[in-house]
């Protein structure tokens, strides 16, 4: 295999990016407060809790109350970051988020770990694959799914300066750190990772690294790939999507989420209305996950680099 255009020396979980980012932003901004529903260790909120005990609120296993508390804490200027698993951050509390946070335009940062299949062995009860869809349907909501430790840390810090509700999604497993430690994080701005001309891969979250590997495989086959990291799924960077689709003529979307409602649909919305373009989805196809090792699950459910390669070849085929 040809060398990937991005390399790494260390692997780390994106949730640690959140935990470290939270500590850093809390040092800079005294209005940042944290809430956690009995998952402080899993969310990596322990350092924040230790450093700022008076700004940390343990809610117990009561996520609905946590969302309401967070909404109320914004009244008087606080910036609450809630922490629990992605499943309990969205599906369990959809109505609380909808009424008390999104409709009420409250400045709450919903920080969600263990999203998707890579949660692994705990199985489908915890492997939420519908969260991006639920959150991007809500008016006023911003939806962010960074790709590695550094980007998650940068996003965690950046969202404090954005006034309004944010859903920040990250995960459990250790994954390559391949973006820079000092990157600026601009909400809503897609990042062109690799310039190419035959096909565009729009990837988000853990699938960005898979796409980096897929690009190397496709390059060896003589295919020129443009890779764009869509860390912000809402508001989506329509301009970047249209410009790249215009150049390459076909696209692949790659995400650790259901095909329904996620990044793929967000990109399809943009292209259908502006520039109808052949598109292949790399996503979970209307199924629940199961127990297993993260890498095994990503292969079984069609979310790895090999599946991105197949999708890219299909997309190119459809151009003809």
């Amino acid at each position: 295999m040809a060398a990937t255009k991005y390399t790494y020396t260390e692997q780390k979980d994106t949730r640690s990016g959140f935990g470290d980012g939270l500590l850093e932003v809390a040092k800079k901004n005294e209005n940042v407060v944290g809430l956690c529903a009995d998952l402080t260790g899993s969310l990596k909120m322990g350092d924040f809790q230790k450093e700022f005990p008076e700004r940390f609120y343990q809610t117990g296993i009561a996520e609905a109350n946590m969302m309401g508390l967070a909404a109320g804490m914004t009244i008087g200027g606080k910036i609450p970051y809630t922490g629990t698993f992605a499943n309990f951050s969205t599906g369990r509390v959809y109505d609380q988020i909808r009424q008390s946070i999104a409709y009420s335009e409250k400045n709450v940062k919903i920080c969600a770990s263990h999203a998707g299949l890579t949660l692994g062995e705990d199985g489908a009860t915890h492997q939420i694959l519908e969260d991006i869809g639920m959150m991007r349907m809500l008016p006023n909501m911003t939806v962010i799914n960074p790709c590695d430790y550094n980007q998650t840390k940068a996003a965690t810090i950046a969202i404090a300066d954005h006034h309004g509700p944010v859903y920040l999604r990250f995960g459990r497993p250790k994954v390559p750190i391949f973006t820079s430690a000092d990157q600026p994080f601009e909400i809503g701005k897609a990042i062109k990772m690799i310039e190419g001309s035959d096909v565009t891969i729009f990837a988000t979250g853990h699938l960005v690294w898979e796409a980096v590997e897929a690009e190397a495989i496709l390059r060896e086959k003589g295919i020129s790939v443009e890779l764009i990291n869509i860390h912000t799924i809402k508001p989506i960077d329509a301009e970047a999507i249209i410009a790249s689709a215009k150049k390459t003529g076909c696209v692949v979307t790659a995400e650790e989420h259901q095909k329904n409602g996620g990044l793929g649909d967000a990109v399809a919305n943009v292209l259908a209305e502006n520039l109808p373009t052949p598109q292949q989805y790399v996503a979970v196809d209307d199924q629940f996950g199961e127990s297993g090792k993260p890498a095994e699950l990503m292969t079984k459910y069609g979310l790895d680099a090999q599946h991105i390669v197949i999708a890219a070849e299909k997309a190119i085929e459809r151009k003809k």
Partner: peptide
């Protein structure tokens, strides 16, 4: 069922 949670959050911010 949501208002008491919100009120408590506002009370803690105070």
């Amino acid at each position: 069922g949501q208002g008491l949670s919100v009120a408590l959050g506002a009370a803690q911010t105070k």
